[in-house]
């Protein structure tokens, strides 16, 4: 059995850490899947899916680490007009932060519930907002 749901979120800032933990847990509970796996996958290349503790200090440390690792101003190649878009790229920072955070996470599902640690919250990380974003939640099992 496979159930696919989409979480839609309009980010309101250039960078944003949006906690989607409850929405993912609800989707799993309502999916009818008792035992299996849930995959949380972003539909974009300038967002990330993070699993970490939902504390403001942890969020700030993650954001600071990513900013140091991938600064806004650096001689990125992806900063020019793209004829196939008719628009200028200029979001390399978002792409690279997305690479570092990854585009998905997985959790086991047992007895219709996600099995996870108490500190494991799930974030949609925005790195090129504001934009309307989509996250796919696929629950697979029996």
């Amino acid at each position: 059995m496979v159930v696919l749901k989409t979480i839609r979120h309009l980010s309101k800032d250039v960078e944003e850490y949006f906690n989607i933990t409850q929405q993912v847990h609800d989707i799993v509970r309502e999916s009818g899947v008792k035992n299996g796996l849930v995959a949380v996958i972003t539909a974009h290349t300038t967002t990330g899916i993070l699993v970490n503790e939902a504390l403001p200090c942890v969020e700030a440390d993650i954001a600071e680490m990513l900013e140091k690792t991938v600064p806004l101003e650096a001689p990125y190649l992806h900063a020019h007009f793209l004829p196939t878009y008719g628009a200028t790229s200029n979001n390399s920072q978002g792409h690279l932060k997305s690479v570092l955070t990854g585009n998905h996470c997985l959790f086991p599902v047992i007895d219709g519930q996600i099995v996870c640690g108490g500190a494991q919250d799930i974030y949609l990380a925005e790195f090129d907002g504001p934009q309307l974003r989509k996250v796919y939640v696929e629950v697979m099992g029996e």
Binding site: D13, Y85, G86, A87, P130, L132
Partner: peptide, 24 residues
């Protein structure tokens, strides 16, 4: 419009998304 103006891989946006960018 897209073909004539030469812009692709973008789609309709509602005002809440547009104005979120304005607010930034």
């Amino acid at each position: 419009r897209g073909d004539t103006f030469g812009v692709w891989k973008q789609g309709p946006m509602e005002f809440d998304e547009l104005f979120a960018e304005w607010d930034v």
